[in-house]
């Protein structure tokens, strides 16, 4: 019998760290700027400011998949869109280890630097493929667009890499030149994943990637995500309202309600021994 591997625990800094992230729509007032203000869900009863994110702290460590669950309207997607610069947070900080060793708050860098981070460090897969893909251009062009943005200029290399990625996500070669608008939802989602991966980002953001897909396609996309994690050792932040998806993918999970993280822990602990009343309700709703 060969000798088994030794396993030493390596202390690592988180690859992605969010600190006190806030996002509100509206100016806020004296009442809702207080820490202990009681809101109607996430809306201030006095000035009707919507507090989409309230003091979110979150960490993703290298090579791990972290889940974020919560009902719709809890701020999950806003969280993702803030990290990917689709929305400007009202306050807070985000540090990424691959960007200047995590010393700079990425919300405060120049637009040019933000683009660089978007193209080289982060990959995003949206719930709605229309947000992530240009539907009228071929799948290959879609992937090439990101490769060019990330600095590739050699057409042959780009083609080879695109072919490789598309076969990785099981899109057959003879459909690679077709526009994604002709594809099924599951295929579009897989093209999106290939596109996000094309610049080899160390961090992947997945926003409800399997929502609206039928079960067998869902399973295939999830298997693909797991394989990608094992193969490329990419860190992922996965947002879903589907506890089954989170259970399958994530080892650690954050639970969001009305813009706040109400509970976090090991995924099986969250599912079997939820501490917060809302999490209990969520788990009981699991089919």
């Amino acid at each position: 019998m060969p000798k088994t591997l030794e396993h030493n625990f390596v202390e690592q800094a988180p690859i992605l760290r969010l600190e006190d992230l806030n996002k509100s729509y509206g100016d806020g007032c004296e009442y809702c700027s207080k820490e202990d203000a009681v809101l109607e869900k996430n809306i201030c009863p006095k000035c009707h400011t919507v507090h989409a994110l309230r003091g979110v702290n979150l960490e993703v460590y290298p090579g791990e998949i972290v889940g974020v669950v919560g009902e719709s309207g809890s701020g999950k997607s806003t969280l993702m869109q803030c990290i990917y610069f689709d929305k400007n947070p009202s306050s807070g900080a985000c540090y990424l280890t691959p960007y200047k060793e995590g010393t700079e708050n990425i919300f405060e860098v120049s637009e040019q630097e933000k683009l660089k981070i978007k193209n080289l460090i982060l990959g995003m897969v949206y719930q709605n493929p229309y947000l992530g893909l240009r539907m009228d251009f071929s799948s290959l062009s879609n992937i090439a667009e990101r490769q060019i943005a990330a600095g590739s200029r050699n057409v042959h290399e780009m083609m080879d890499r695109s072919d490789e990625l598309l076969s990785e996500v099981n899109i057959s070669k003879w459909r690679a030149k077709e526009a994604p608008k002709n594809f099924s939802g599951g295929m579009q989602q897989r093209v999106q994943i290939a596109k996000a991966l094309s610049s080899n980002p160390p961090i992947l953001l997945l926003d409800e990637v399997t929502t609206g897909l039928d079960l067998s396609v869902q399973a295939r996309v999830l298997d693909l995500i797991k394989d990608i994690m094992h193969e490329f050792n990419i860190s992922m932040l996965v947002v879903s309202h589907d506890l089954g998806v989170i259970r399958m993918l994530a080892e650690r999970t954050y639970v969001m309600l009305d813009g706040k993280v109400v509970e976090s822990g090991l995924t099986d602990q969250i599912l079997e021994d939820p501490q917060h009343p809302y999490t209990q309700q969520l788990v009981y709703s699991l089919l």
Binding site: Q269, E272, D273, Q275
Partner: peptide, 9 residues
């Protein structure tokens, strides 16, 4: 057992 495995807190 679940407390030892941290499935329960």
């Amino acid at each position: 057992l679940k407390c030892i495995y941290r499935t329960n807190l």
